[in-house]
Design a protein around this nucleic acid. Sequence first.
DNA 1: GGGGTTGTGCCGTCTAGCGGCACGCTGTAT
DNA 2: ATACAGCGTGCCGCTAGACGGCACAACCCC
Lengths: 254, 254
Amino acid sequence: MQNVVNALRALEEVAVRQPVGVADLARALELPKSSVQRTLVTLHGAGWIRPAGGTPTRWLVTTKALHVGRHATGELGLRDVALPVMEELRRSTDETIHLAVREGGNVVLVERLETSQPVRIILPLGQNLSMHASANGKAVLAADPPEAAERYIAEGLRSFTGTTITDPQKLREELEETRARGYATNSGEWRADVSAVACAVVGESGLPFASISVNVPTSRMTPGVLPEFGALVNAAAKRVSAALGRAHEGGGAR
Amino acid sequence: MQNVVNALRALEEVAVRQPVGVADLARALELPKSSVQRTLVTLHGAGWIRPAGGTPTRWLVTTKALHVGRHATGELGLRDVALPVMEELRRSTDETIHLAVREGGNVVLVERLETSQPVRIILPLGQNLSMHASANGKAVLAADPPEAAERYIAEGLRSFTGTTITDPQKLREELEETRARGYATNSGEWRADVSAVACAVVGESGLPFASISVNVPTSRMTPGVLPEFGALVNAAAKRVSAALGRAHEGGGAR
DNA sequence: GGGGTTGTGCCGTCTAGCGGCACGCTGTAT
DNA sequence: ATACAGCGTGCCGCTAGACGGCACAACCCC
Protein backbone atom coordinates (compact mmCIF):
# COMPACT_ATOMS: atom_id res chain seq x y z
CA MET A 1 0.00 0.00 0.00
CA GLN A 2 2.87 2.31 -0.83
CA ASN A 3 0.28 4.16 -2.77
CA VAL A 4 -1.75 5.12 0.29
CA VAL A 5 1.34 6.11 2.21
CA ASN A 6 2.35 8.46 -0.58
CA ALA A 7 -1.13 9.92 -0.78
CA LEU A 8 -1.13 10.66 2.94
CA ARG A 9 2.33 12.16 2.73
CA ALA A 10 1.09 14.34 -0.11
CA LEU A 11 -1.87 15.42 1.99
CA GLU A 12 0.34 16.45 4.87
CA GLU A 13 2.69 18.22 2.56
CA VAL A 14 -0.17 20.15 0.98
CA ALA A 15 -1.33 21.18 4.43
CA VAL A 16 2.08 22.55 5.35
CA ARG A 17 2.91 24.23 2.06
CA GLN A 18 -0.52 25.33 0.85
CA PRO A 19 -1.24 26.88 -1.53
CA VAL A 20 1.10 24.63 -3.52
CA GLY A 21 1.44 23.33 -7.10
CA VAL A 22 2.19 19.88 -8.50
CA ALA A 23 5.83 20.47 -9.37
CA ASP A 24 6.70 21.91 -5.95
CA LEU A 25 5.07 18.97 -4.25
CA ALA A 26 6.74 16.43 -6.48
CA ARG A 27 10.10 17.88 -5.53
CA ALA A 28 9.29 17.94 -1.84
CA LEU A 29 8.08 14.34 -1.89
CA GLU A 30 10.81 13.17 -4.28
CA LEU A 31 8.21 11.50 -6.44
CA PRO A 32 7.53 11.70 -10.19
CA LYS A 33 5.37 14.64 -11.14
CA SER A 34 2.75 12.55 -12.88
CA SER A 35 2.31 10.31 -9.85
CA VAL A 36 1.81 13.30 -7.61
CA GLN A 37 -0.63 14.78 -10.08
CA ARG A 38 -2.71 11.60 -10.03
CA THR A 39 -2.62 11.54 -6.25
CA LEU A 40 -3.81 15.14 -6.04
CA VAL A 41 -6.75 14.43 -8.33
CA THR A 42 -7.67 11.45 -6.20
CA LEU A 43 -7.41 13.39 -2.94
CA HIS A 44 -9.59 16.04 -4.52
CA GLY A 45 -12.14 13.45 -5.60
CA ALA A 46 -12.26 12.20 -2.03
CA GLY A 47 -12.81 15.76 -0.80
CA TRP A 48 -9.64 16.20 1.22
CA ILE A 49 -8.04 18.92 -0.87
CA ARG A 50 -9.36 21.45 -3.35
CA PRO A 51 -7.88 23.62 -6.09
CA ALA A 52 -7.57 27.29 -5.15
CA GLY A 53 -9.44 28.25 -8.27
CA GLY A 54 -6.98 30.45 -10.18
CA THR A 55 -4.42 29.48 -12.76
CA PRO A 56 -1.92 27.95 -12.34
CA THR A 57 -3.64 25.38 -10.14
CA ARG A 58 -2.73 25.62 -6.48
CA TRP A 59 -3.98 23.14 -3.92
CA LEU A 60 -5.41 23.70 -0.44
CA VAL A 61 -6.60 21.26 2.22
CA THR A 62 -10.30 21.24 2.99
CA THR A 63 -11.87 20.95 6.42
CA LYS A 64 -12.28 17.19 5.97
CA ALA A 65 -9.25 16.63 8.18
CA LEU A 66 -10.83 18.82 10.86
CA HIS A 67 -13.93 16.65 10.90
CA VAL A 68 -11.82 13.55 11.35
CA GLY A 69 -9.50 15.20 13.85
CA ARG A 70 -12.36 16.19 16.10
CA HIS A 71 -12.75 12.58 17.08
CA ALA A 72 -9.12 12.22 18.07
CA THR A 73 -9.69 12.16 21.80
CA GLY A 74 -8.43 8.68 22.49
CA GLU A 75 -11.40 7.44 24.43
CA LEU A 76 -14.96 7.38 23.28
CA GLY A 77 -16.80 10.40 24.58
CA LEU A 78 -13.90 11.94 26.47
CA ARG A 79 -14.58 15.36 25.04
CA ASP A 80 -18.28 15.24 25.85
CA VAL A 81 -17.61 14.15 29.40
CA ALA A 82 -14.76 16.57 29.97
CA LEU A 83 -16.25 19.74 28.52
CA PRO A 84 -18.83 20.48 31.23
CA VAL A 85 -16.23 19.80 33.91
CA MET A 86 -13.75 22.06 32.13
CA GLU A 87 -16.46 24.70 31.91
CA GLU A 88 -16.94 24.67 35.64
CA LEU A 89 -13.20 24.66 36.18
CA ARG A 90 -12.87 27.75 34.08
CA ARG A 91 -15.68 29.46 35.94
CA SER A 92 -14.01 28.86 39.27
CA THR A 93 -10.49 29.81 38.12
CA ASP A 94 -11.13 32.23 35.24
CA GLU A 95 -8.01 30.85 33.60
CA THR A 96 -7.43 28.91 30.38
CA ILE A 97 -8.29 25.20 30.68
CA HIS A 98 -6.62 22.58 28.48
CA LEU A 99 -7.58 19.02 27.73
CA ALA A 100 -4.72 16.92 26.40
CA VAL A 101 -4.49 13.25 25.41
CA ARG A 102 -1.43 11.08 25.49
CA GLU A 103 -0.16 9.95 22.13
CA GLY A 104 3.03 8.05 21.62
CA GLY A 105 5.70 9.68 23.74
CA ASN A 106 3.90 12.99 23.86
CA VAL A 107 0.75 14.65 25.04
CA VAL A 108 -1.42 16.50 22.54
CA LEU A 109 -3.75 19.42 23.17
CA VAL A 110 -7.25 18.54 21.95
CA GLU A 111 -9.62 21.00 23.61
CA ARG A 112 -9.35 24.42 25.13
CA LEU A 113 -11.46 26.93 27.02
CA GLU A 114 -10.01 30.36 27.50
CA THR A 115 -9.86 32.84 30.29
CA SER A 116 -11.52 36.18 29.71
CA GLN A 117 -8.48 38.00 31.04
CA PRO A 118 -6.47 40.08 28.60
CA VAL A 119 -3.13 38.37 29.21
CA ARG A 120 -3.56 34.78 28.17
CA ILE A 121 -1.99 31.74 26.62
CA ILE A 122 -3.27 30.62 23.27
CA LEU A 123 -1.94 27.31 22.08
CA PRO A 124 -3.29 25.82 18.86
CA LEU A 125 -5.32 22.62 19.09
CA GLY A 126 -3.09 19.76 18.03
CA GLN A 127 -0.07 21.23 19.79
CA ASN A 128 2.41 18.63 20.99
CA LEU A 129 3.56 18.97 24.57
CA SER A 130 6.55 17.07 25.86
CA MET A 131 6.14 14.81 28.86
CA HIS A 132 8.76 16.35 31.08
CA ALA A 133 8.29 20.03 30.30
CA SER A 134 4.54 20.51 30.65
CA ALA A 135 2.14 20.13 33.54
CA ASN A 136 -0.10 17.88 31.46
CA GLY A 137 2.82 15.69 30.51
CA LYS A 138 4.14 15.39 34.04
CA ALA A 139 0.68 14.56 35.36
CA VAL A 140 0.46 11.67 32.91
CA LEU A 141 4.01 10.54 33.62
CA ALA A 142 3.39 10.58 37.35
CA ALA A 143 0.31 8.42 36.92
CA ASP A 144 2.15 5.94 34.71
CA PRO A 145 3.82 2.80 36.03
CA PRO A 146 7.44 3.61 36.96
CA GLU A 147 8.83 1.50 34.07
CA ALA A 148 6.99 3.65 31.54
CA ALA A 149 8.39 6.81 33.08
CA GLU A 150 11.88 5.32 33.06
CA ARG A 151 11.49 4.39 29.42
CA TYR A 152 10.63 7.98 28.65
CA ILE A 153 13.48 9.35 30.71
CA ALA A 154 15.90 7.05 28.92
CA GLU A 155 15.14 8.82 25.65
CA GLY A 156 16.67 12.01 27.00
CA LEU A 157 15.18 15.18 28.45
CA ARG A 158 15.38 18.07 26.04
CA SER A 159 15.76 21.54 27.49
CA PHE A 160 13.46 24.41 26.48
CA THR A 161 14.03 27.14 29.06
CA GLY A 162 16.34 27.67 32.00
CA THR A 163 13.95 25.91 34.36
CA THR A 164 13.29 22.80 32.26
CA ILE A 165 14.04 19.67 34.26
CA THR A 166 16.76 17.83 32.37
CA ASP A 167 18.26 15.83 35.23
CA PRO A 168 16.64 12.34 35.40
CA GLN A 169 16.98 12.19 39.17
CA LYS A 170 15.35 15.55 39.67
CA LEU A 171 12.50 14.50 37.41
CA ARG A 172 11.96 11.30 39.43
CA GLU A 173 11.73 13.37 42.61
CA GLU A 174 9.37 15.78 40.93
CA LEU A 175 7.09 12.91 39.87
CA GLU A 176 7.15 11.55 43.40
CA GLU A 177 6.15 14.96 44.74
CA THR A 178 3.43 15.15 42.10
CA ARG A 179 1.94 11.86 43.26
CA ALA A 180 2.01 12.99 46.90
CA ARG A 181 0.61 16.40 46.09
CA GLY A 182 -2.15 15.22 43.78
CA TYR A 183 -1.38 17.56 40.90
CA ALA A 184 1.50 18.36 38.58
CA THR A 185 2.93 21.83 38.09
CA ASN A 186 4.91 23.67 35.48
CA SER A 187 6.54 27.01 36.04
CA GLY A 188 7.91 28.25 32.79
CA GLU A 189 9.65 24.99 31.99
CA TRP A 190 8.54 24.90 28.36
CA ARG A 191 7.95 28.55 27.64
CA ALA A 192 9.04 31.08 30.18
CA ASP A 193 5.69 32.87 30.30
CA VAL A 194 3.52 29.78 30.69
CA SER A 195 2.81 28.15 34.02
CA ALA A 196 0.21 25.50 34.79
CA VAL A 197 -1.18 22.90 37.14
CA ALA A 198 -2.51 19.61 35.79
CA CYS A 199 -3.96 16.26 36.80
CA ALA A 200 -4.24 13.04 34.80
CA VAL A 201 -7.44 11.32 33.74
CA VAL A 202 -7.21 7.58 34.19
CA GLY A 203 -9.14 4.87 32.36
CA GLU A 204 -10.60 1.59 33.49
CA SER A 205 -7.21 -0.06 33.30
CA GLY A 206 -5.84 2.44 35.78
CA LEU A 207 -3.53 3.91 33.17
CA PRO A 208 -3.62 7.62 32.43
CA PHE A 209 -4.67 8.53 28.90
CA ALA A 210 -5.49 12.22 29.18
CA SER A 211 -4.94 15.23 31.37
CA ILE A 212 -6.64 18.44 32.37
CA SER A 213 -4.72 21.60 33.16
CA VAL A 214 -5.22 25.16 34.31
CA ASN A 215 -2.85 27.44 32.42
CA VAL A 216 -1.76 30.73 33.82
CA PRO A 217 0.65 33.37 32.57
CA THR A 218 3.71 33.13 34.82
CA SER A 219 3.10 36.73 35.78
CA ARG A 220 -0.23 35.84 37.40
CA MET A 221 1.03 32.64 39.04
CA THR A 222 1.45 33.70 42.66
CA PRO A 223 2.32 31.06 45.29
CA GLY A 224 -1.14 31.35 46.80
CA VAL A 225 -3.16 30.25 43.80
CA LEU A 226 -1.06 27.16 43.15
CA PRO A 227 -2.55 24.84 45.79
CA GLU A 228 -5.99 26.30 45.17
CA PHE A 229 -5.93 25.57 41.46
CA GLY A 230 -4.23 22.26 42.20
CA ALA A 231 -7.12 21.10 44.32
CA LEU A 232 -9.63 22.24 41.72
CA VAL A 233 -7.92 20.53 38.80
CA ASN A 234 -7.47 17.36 40.88
CA ALA A 235 -11.19 17.27 41.63
CA ALA A 236 -12.01 17.92 37.99
CA ALA A 237 -9.80 15.08 36.72
CA LYS A 238 -11.29 12.75 39.29
CA ARG A 239 -14.79 13.61 38.16
CA VAL A 240 -13.94 12.94 34.51
CA SER A 241 -12.19 9.67 35.34
CA ALA A 242 -15.16 8.56 37.41
CA ALA A 243 -17.65 9.54 34.73
CA LEU A 244 -15.68 7.43 32.26
CA GLY A 245 -16.43 4.41 34.32
CA ARG A 246 -13.92 4.00 37.08
CA ALA A 247 -13.31 5.59 40.44
CA HIS A 248 -10.24 7.80 40.47
CA GLU A 249 -8.13 6.05 43.05
CA GLY A 250 -5.40 7.43 45.25
CA GLY A 251 -4.03 10.93 44.90
CA GLY A 252 -4.74 13.06 41.90
CA ALA A 253 -2.00 11.58 39.86
CA ARG A 254 -1.85 7.90 40.54
CA MET B 1 -6.40 5.00 -7.07
CA GLN B 2 -9.39 3.19 -5.72
CA ASN B 3 -7.02 2.05 -3.08
CA VAL B 4 -6.49 5.54 -1.65
CA VAL B 5 -10.18 6.33 -1.77
CA ASN B 6 -10.94 3.24 0.27
CA ALA B 7 -8.20 4.04 2.76
CA LEU B 8 -9.61 7.53 3.30
CA ARG B 9 -13.12 6.14 3.66
CA ALA B 10 -11.77 3.71 6.24
CA LEU B 11 -10.10 6.55 8.10
CA GLU B 12 -13.31 8.54 8.26
CA GLU B 13 -15.23 5.50 9.33
CA VAL B 14 -12.75 4.80 12.11
CA ALA B 15 -13.12 8.38 13.30
CA VAL B 16 -16.89 8.10 13.50
CA ARG B 17 -17.11 4.62 15.00
CA GLN B 18 -13.99 4.48 17.14
CA PRO B 19 -13.06 2.36 18.94
CA VAL B 20 -13.84 -0.13 16.17
CA GLY B 21 -12.63 -3.54 14.98
CA VAL B 22 -11.81 -4.90 11.52
CA ALA B 23 -14.97 -6.90 11.02
CA ASP B 24 -17.26 -4.02 11.98
CA LEU B 25 -15.44 -1.73 9.61
CA ALA B 26 -15.47 -4.21 6.76
CA ARG B 27 -19.23 -4.46 7.06
CA ALA B 28 -19.67 -0.70 7.21
CA LEU B 29 -17.47 -0.15 4.18
CA GLU B 30 -18.83 -3.18 2.33
CA LEU B 31 -15.30 -4.35 1.62
CA PRO B 32 -13.57 -7.72 2.19
CA LYS B 33 -12.22 -8.10 5.68
CA SER B 34 -8.68 -8.82 4.55
CA SER B 35 -8.58 -5.67 2.44
CA VAL B 36 -9.74 -3.56 5.34
CA GLN B 37 -7.21 -5.23 7.61
CA ARG B 38 -4.40 -4.36 5.23
CA THR B 39 -5.65 -0.80 4.99
CA LEU B 40 -5.74 -0.44 8.76
CA VAL B 41 -2.17 -1.66 9.10
CA THR B 42 -1.09 0.82 6.45
CA LEU B 43 -2.94 3.72 8.09
CA HIS B 44 -1.31 2.74 11.35
CA GLY B 45 2.12 2.68 9.72
CA ALA B 46 1.49 6.16 8.42
CA GLY B 47 0.50 7.29 11.91
CA TRP B 48 -3.12 8.19 11.27
CA ILE B 49 -4.71 5.54 13.46
CA ARG B 50 -3.52 3.46 16.37
CA PRO B 51 -4.64 0.27 18.10
CA ALA B 52 -6.34 0.86 21.43
CA GLY B 53 -3.97 -1.56 23.08
CA GLY B 54 -6.22 -4.24 24.50
CA THR B 55 -7.43 -7.42 22.90
CA PRO B 56 -9.36 -7.71 20.68
CA THR B 57 -7.73 -4.95 18.64
CA ARG B 58 -9.79 -1.80 18.43
CA TRP B 59 -8.68 1.17 16.33
CA LEU B 60 -8.67 4.87 17.16
CA VAL B 61 -7.71 7.90 15.10
CA THR B 62 -4.63 9.79 16.19
CA THR B 63 -4.21 13.56 16.25
CA LYS B 64 -2.55 13.47 12.84
CA ALA B 65 -5.77 14.66 11.27
CA LEU B 66 -5.87 17.56 13.74
CA HIS B 67 -2.44 18.68 12.64
CA VAL B 68 -3.50 18.65 9.01
CA GLY B 69 -6.88 20.20 9.73
CA ARG B 70 -5.33 23.15 11.50
CA HIS B 71 -4.13 24.42 8.15
CA ALA B 72 -7.59 24.27 6.63
CA THR B 73 -8.21 27.98 6.61
CA GLY B 74 -8.43 28.45 2.88
CA GLU B 75 -5.95 31.27 2.59
CA LEU B 76 -2.41 31.23 3.76
CA GLY B 77 -2.09 32.83 7.15
CA LEU B 78 -5.76 33.66 7.58
CA ARG B 79 -5.82 32.30 11.11
CA ASP B 80 -2.71 34.21 12.15
CA VAL B 81 -4.03 37.45 10.76
CA ALA B 82 -7.54 36.99 12.08
CA LEU B 83 -6.79 35.85 15.63
CA PRO B 84 -5.55 39.16 17.06
CA VAL B 85 -8.47 40.96 15.47
CA MET B 86 -10.87 38.39 16.86
CA GLU B 87 -9.24 38.82 20.25
CA GLU B 88 -9.94 42.52 20.25
CA LEU B 89 -13.44 41.91 19.00
CA ARG B 90 -14.11 39.61 21.89
CA ARG B 91 -12.70 42.12 24.34
CA SER B 92 -15.02 44.84 23.09
CA THR B 93 -18.11 42.62 22.91
CA ASP B 94 -17.45 39.92 25.50
CA GLU B 95 -19.30 37.51 23.26
CA THR B 96 -18.23 34.40 21.36
CA ILE B 97 -16.35 35.16 18.14
CA HIS B 98 -16.33 32.74 15.20
CA LEU B 99 -14.09 32.55 12.16
CA ALA B 100 -15.59 30.55 9.30
CA VAL B 101 -14.33 29.78 5.81
CA ARG B 102 -16.39 29.05 2.75
CA GLU B 103 -16.14 25.55 1.43
CA GLY B 104 -18.25 24.22 -1.38
CA GLY B 105 -21.81 25.34 -0.82
CA ASN B 106 -21.29 25.81 2.88
CA VAL B 107 -19.35 27.77 5.43
CA VAL B 108 -17.24 25.90 8.00
CA LEU B 109 -16.27 27.03 11.48
CA VAL B 110 -12.49 26.98 11.85
CA GLU B 111 -11.66 29.11 14.88
CA ARG B 112 -13.47 30.24 17.96
CA LEU B 113 -12.97 32.52 20.94
CA GLU B 114 -15.49 32.32 23.70
CA THR B 115 -17.28 34.77 25.87
CA SER B 116 -16.70 34.49 29.60
CA GLN B 117 -20.41 34.75 30.28
CA PRO B 118 -22.13 31.69 31.68
CA VAL B 119 -24.77 31.39 28.96
CA ARG B 120 -22.91 30.77 25.76
CA ILE B 121 -22.86 29.01 22.44
CA ILE B 122 -20.32 26.29 21.93
CA LEU B 123 -20.11 24.95 18.40
CA PRO B 124 -17.43 22.39 17.55
CA LEU B 125 -14.66 23.42 15.19
CA GLY B 126 -15.41 21.92 11.81
CA GLN B 127 -19.14 22.61 12.15
CA ASN B 128 -20.87 23.18 8.82
CA LEU B 129 -23.11 26.20 8.62
CA SER B 130 -25.58 26.66 5.81
CA MET B 131 -25.38 29.79 3.69
CA HIS B 132 -28.91 31.04 4.20
CA ALA B 133 -29.44 30.20 7.86
CA SER B 134 -26.33 31.61 9.51
CA ALA B 135 -24.94 35.11 9.83
CA ASN B 136 -21.57 33.93 8.52
CA GLY B 137 -23.19 32.30 5.52
CA LYS B 138 -25.35 35.29 4.68
CA ALA B 139 -22.37 37.62 4.97
CA VAL B 140 -20.50 35.52 2.41
CA LEU B 141 -23.54 35.21 0.16
CA ALA B 142 -24.13 38.95 0.24
CA ALA B 143 -20.53 39.60 -0.79
CA ASP B 144 -20.73 37.09 -3.64
CA PRO B 145 -21.62 38.07 -7.17
CA PRO B 146 -25.41 37.83 -7.65
CA GLU B 147 -25.08 34.82 -9.98
CA ALA B 148 -23.36 32.81 -7.26
CA ALA B 149 -26.09 33.65 -4.79
CA GLU B 150 -28.75 32.69 -7.33
CA ARG B 151 -27.02 29.40 -7.95
CA TYR B 152 -27.13 28.69 -4.22
CA ILE B 153 -30.77 29.72 -3.96
CA ALA B 154 -31.67 27.43 -6.85
CA GLU B 155 -30.57 24.44 -4.80
CA GLY B 156 -33.37 25.08 -2.35
CA LEU B 157 -33.48 26.68 1.09
CA ARG B 158 -33.88 24.17 3.85
CA SER B 159 -35.78 25.20 6.95
CA PHE B 160 -34.31 24.74 10.45
CA THR B 161 -36.50 26.85 12.73
CA GLY B 162 -39.63 28.92 12.39
CA THR B 163 -37.63 31.99 11.40
CA THR B 164 -35.39 30.39 8.74
CA ILE B 165 -35.66 32.28 5.48
CA THR B 166 -36.93 29.78 2.92
CA ASP B 167 -38.49 32.18 0.44
CA PRO B 168 -35.97 33.06 -2.33
CA GLN B 169 -37.36 36.57 -2.76
CA LYS B 170 -37.16 37.30 0.94
CA LEU B 171 -33.56 36.07 0.97
CA ARG B 172 -32.65 38.35 -1.96
CA GLU B 173 -34.08 41.32 -0.07
CA GLU B 174 -32.24 40.27 3.06
CA LEU B 175 -28.94 40.11 1.14
CA GLU B 176 -29.62 43.55 -0.31
CA GLU B 177 -30.23 44.90 3.18
CA THR B 178 -27.06 43.19 4.35
CA ARG B 179 -25.01 44.94 1.69
CA ALA B 180 -26.54 48.32 2.57
CA ARG B 181 -26.14 47.76 6.29
CA GLY B 182 -22.58 46.45 6.17
CA TYR B 183 -23.17 43.32 8.24
CA ALA B 184 -25.32 40.21 8.16
CA THR B 185 -27.57 39.09 10.99
CA ASN B 186 -29.15 35.90 12.20
CA SER B 187 -31.86 35.75 14.80
CA GLY B 188 -32.51 32.15 15.67
CA GLU B 189 -32.77 31.07 12.03
CA TRP B 190 -30.65 27.96 12.45
CA ARG B 191 -31.07 27.22 16.12
CA ALA B 192 -33.65 29.15 18.06
CA ASP B 193 -31.26 30.14 20.83
CA VAL B 194 -28.42 31.37 18.61
CA SER B 195 -28.26 34.86 17.16
CA ALA B 196 -25.32 36.54 15.48
CA VAL B 197 -23.95 39.34 13.39
CA ALA B 198 -21.27 38.68 10.75
CA CYS B 199 -19.20 40.28 8.03
CA ALA B 200 -17.32 38.66 5.15
CA VAL B 201 -13.56 38.70 4.62
CA VAL B 202 -12.70 39.29 0.97
CA GLY B 203 -9.55 38.30 -0.86
CA GLU B 204 -7.52 40.02 -3.54
CA SER B 205 -9.97 38.95 -6.20
CA GLY B 206 -12.76 40.74 -4.37
CA LEU B 207 -14.51 37.47 -3.64
CA PRO B 208 -15.41 36.54 -0.07
CA PHE B 209 -13.70 33.44 1.28
CA ALA B 210 -14.22 33.72 5.00
CA SER B 211 -16.36 35.46 7.59
CA ILE B 212 -16.16 36.72 11.14
CA SER B 213 -19.14 36.71 13.46
CA VAL B 214 -20.20 37.72 16.94
CA ASN B 215 -22.49 35.06 18.39
CA VAL B 216 -24.94 35.86 21.11
CA PRO B 217 -27.58 33.79 22.87
CA THR B 218 -30.92 35.03 21.55
CA SER B 219 -31.84 35.88 25.11
CA ARG B 220 -29.04 38.47 25.29
CA MET B 221 -29.62 39.89 21.80
CA THR B 222 -31.44 43.13 22.52
CA PRO B 223 -32.18 45.54 19.64
CA GLY B 224 -29.64 48.00 20.97
CA VAL B 225 -26.55 45.83 20.70
CA LEU B 226 -27.25 44.76 17.14
CA PRO B 227 -25.96 47.88 15.33
CA GLU B 228 -23.16 48.24 17.84
CA PHE B 229 -21.84 44.70 17.27
CA GLY B 230 -22.54 45.13 13.57
CA ALA B 231 -20.21 48.09 13.32
CA LEU B 232 -17.54 46.28 15.32
CA VAL B 233 -17.65 43.11 13.25
CA ASN B 234 -17.64 45.13 10.05
CA ALA B 235 -14.51 46.96 11.14
CA ALA B 236 -12.86 43.70 12.17
CA ALA B 237 -13.56 42.01 8.83
CA LYS B 238 -12.25 45.07 6.99
CA ARG B 239 -9.05 44.97 8.99
CA VAL B 240 -8.49 41.28 8.23
CA SER B 241 -9.25 41.76 4.55
CA ALA B 242 -6.86 44.68 4.37
CA ALA B 243 -4.13 42.83 6.21
CA LEU B 244 -4.47 40.01 3.69
CA GLY B 245 -3.47 42.39 0.98
CA ARG B 246 -6.42 44.29 -0.30
CA ALA B 247 -8.47 47.20 0.93
CA HIS B 248 -11.94 46.19 1.96
CA GLU B 249 -14.03 48.14 -0.48
CA GLY B 250 -17.60 49.34 -0.18
CA GLY B 251 -19.91 48.36 2.68
CA GLY B 252 -19.07 45.63 5.10
CA ALA B 253 -20.34 42.93 2.88
CA ARG B 254 -19.41 43.76 -0.67
C1' DG C 1 -18.42 -27.54 25.14
C1' DG C 2 -19.63 -26.01 20.74
C1' DG C 3 -21.19 -22.73 17.37
C1' DG C 4 -20.39 -18.32 16.00
C1' DT C 5 -17.42 -14.51 15.57
C1' DT C 6 -13.23 -12.25 15.99
C1' DG C 7 -8.44 -10.75 14.47
C1' DT C 8 -4.64 -12.32 11.64
C1' DG C 9 -1.83 -14.16 7.81
C1' DC C 10 -0.87 -16.53 3.29
C1' DC C 11 -0.72 -16.73 -1.76
C1' DG C 12 -1.86 -17.11 -6.73
C1' DT C 13 -4.24 -14.13 -10.04
C1' DC C 14 -4.55 -10.12 -12.71
C1' DT C 15 -5.78 -5.46 -12.43
C1' DA C 16 -4.79 -0.89 -11.77
C1' DG C 17 -1.14 2.20 -10.50
C1' DC C 18 3.57 3.60 -12.17
C1' DG C 19 6.36 6.91 -14.32
C1' DG C 20 8.69 8.21 -18.63
C1' DC C 21 7.35 11.17 -22.06
C1' DA C 22 5.29 14.88 -24.83
C1' DC C 23 2.21 18.78 -25.24
C1' DG C 24 0.53 23.59 -24.71
C1' DC C 25 0.89 27.48 -21.94
C1' DT C 26 2.78 31.38 -19.12
C1' DG C 27 6.07 34.40 -17.40
C1' DT C 28 10.81 35.95 -17.50
C1' DA C 29 15.35 37.05 -19.15
C1' DT C 30 17.89 37.88 -23.15
C1' DA D 1 10.81 39.88 -30.52
C1' DT D 2 12.54 35.69 -29.27
C1' DA D 3 14.21 31.89 -26.67
C1' DC D 4 13.77 29.40 -22.82
C1' DA D 5 12.69 27.37 -18.55
C1' DG D 6 9.23 26.26 -15.86
C1' DC D 7 4.54 25.03 -15.16
C1' DG D 8 0.10 21.88 -15.14
C1' DT D 9 -1.92 18.24 -17.77
C1' DG D 10 -2.71 13.87 -20.19
C1' DC D 11 -1.38 9.43 -22.56
C1' DC D 12 0.04 4.56 -22.53
C1' DG D 13 2.61 0.12 -22.21
C1' DC D 14 4.68 -2.58 -18.47
C1' DT D 15 4.78 -4.86 -14.42
C1' DA D 16 4.80 -4.55 -9.46
C1' DG D 17 1.80 -4.73 -5.93
C1' DA D 18 -2.92 -4.86 -4.33
C1' DC D 19 -7.03 -7.99 -4.16
C1' DG D 20 -9.81 -11.09 -1.74
C1' DG D 21 -10.84 -15.96 -1.06
C1' DC D 22 -9.44 -18.98 2.29
C1' DA D 23 -7.70 -21.11 6.57
C1' DC D 24 -6.60 -20.88 11.40
C1' DA D 25 -6.33 -19.88 16.38
C1' DA D 26 -8.40 -17.36 20.09
C1' DC D 27 -12.29 -15.76 22.31
C1' DC D 28 -17.03 -15.09 24.00
C1' DC D 29 -21.69 -16.17 25.00
C1' DC D 30 -25.14 -19.13 25.12
